[in-house]
Simulated scan of single mutants.
Amino acid sequence: MLIISNQIQIPESEVEISAVRAQGAGGQNVNKVSSAIHLRFDIGNSSLPEEIKQRLLNLRDQRVSSDGIVVIKAQRFRTQEKNKADALERLSLLIKGILKTPKKRLPTKPTKGSKERRLQHKSRRGQIKNLRGKVSDH
């Protein structure tokens, strides 16, 4: 059981975990041992609440495929157990990030004083640039 919050838990049966060979440096150990973990989590068939499912599906994240499957590959550690824990933790963090509802943005307007300061600065810059012109012989 993967515990996300007090109300949300994901049963281990909904998370598909498979061991694969890691990539990159590591010499003989990488070539022999399948220590990397490939985690797959189907959002549509999960026991998550509908609102959270929708937020996950709408998330612009490379880990969420177009089919609605979260794919996480963990290969940071040398042991399969640590990589499995890392993959589950990363899935947990992804869902915890969705739980926080973003604040609605309140549109603001610039103050009268800030508009005046901007226009004064603009005219001052224009005068400076105007003085850079060619000098006449009169």
Score class of each variant (00 low, 15 high):
R124C: 13
K122C: 14
K53L: 11
S46H: 02
M1Y: 03
I72Q: 00
E14F: 01
T101Q: 05
R105S: 07
N58Y: 11
E116D: 12
N58A: 15
T108W: 06
Q75A: 01
P11D: 09
N6A: 12
A85H: 08
R118C: 07
I17C: 08
S123I: 15
V33L: 02
D86K: 01
I8Y: 04
D42E: 10
K122I: 15
H121V: 15
L94P: 02
G27V: 07
I52E: 11
L94Y: 00
R78F: 01
L48S: 06
E14A: 04
I8S: 07
R40L: 08
S136D: 15
E12W: 13
S34T: 10
G26Q: 06
K112V: 14
V30E: 11
R117S: 13
A19K: 07
A87H: 10
V30R: 04
R55A: 10
A74N: 03
A87T: 06
Q23L: 14
R78K: 09
N6H: 13
I95D: 01
L59R: 11
R76Y: 02
R40T: 09
I52P: 08
G68P: 04
R21V: 00
L88T: 03
K100A: 04
I69R: 02
A74Y: 02
N29W: 05
L131T: 05
R90C: 01
S34C: 05
R63N: 08
L93E: 04
Q7E: 12
K96I: 00
L2A: 02
Q80C: 02
I95C: 00
S65N: 04
Q9S: 14
K32G: 00
T79H: 06
K96F: 00
R40V: 09
L59S: 10
Q75E: 05
P107T: 06
I128E: 15
E50G: 08
I95S: 00
M1A: 06
E51R: 09
L131F: 08
E116G: 09
S13A: 10
S5I: 02
R90T: 04
I37G: 01
N45L: 11
I128S: 15
K134Y: 13
G44T: 14
Q28N: 05
E50P: 11
D137Q: 11
S5D: 03
E51G: 10
K109L: 10
Q120M: 14
E16L: 12
R90Y: 05
S18P: 06
R55H: 13
L94G: 01
R60W: 12
S92A: 04
I52F: 05
I8C: 08
L56W: 08
